[in-house]
Amino acid sequence: MTKADGTGTYQLTAEERRVAAGRDLIIEVIASLMIPLIQLFALYVIIHGALGAGGGFQGGVILASSFILYVIAFGITGARKRLPESWNTGLQSLGVYIYAGVGLVCILVSLGFVQYLNYWALPLPVAYEMRRAMGMDFVEIGIGITVMATMTSLFFDLAWKEKEERKEVKESNEGGEKK
């Protein structure tokens, strides 16, 4: 805020900050409405893969696309704060841990009687066929998590690289101008 005698710092208003960063108001509002709905739809697609079209791979990609929409609307630094690198790494491994772990649980719980990934031996208190369906649900969730984390990690790597290159080009331009 400029003070009465002309000293003080000049702070940008929210509108000017947004324009300076290259973002648009309409896209921000629509994205902030759509992103939770996209994520809800993605979870729906993962779980309902057993009843209709869908499944782990499809739902995982839709979940990743919600993060990509966030990056496009709000910029990448904010997105990295929302999904930090440690969480991304952890989720990438967690999904396949669930998948391979369900198979190992099948062997261990039945003391080596059933084979790997034979879902009947899971210790769930339901009938046989429903145990198979629930085993499949666990596995689908695992696949969805891994696919989502991998897609966002790929996108972030490529987008950071471009951001670094743009910053390098800008700095070399400024350095050229200063000279």
Partner: peptide
Amino acid sequence: TDVPNIVTAVIVDYRAYDTL
């Protein structure tokens, strides 16, 4: 397998190792 979607049943139950 109690799952109406046969494609999901095949890739996650009968041939689960390939999906891994």
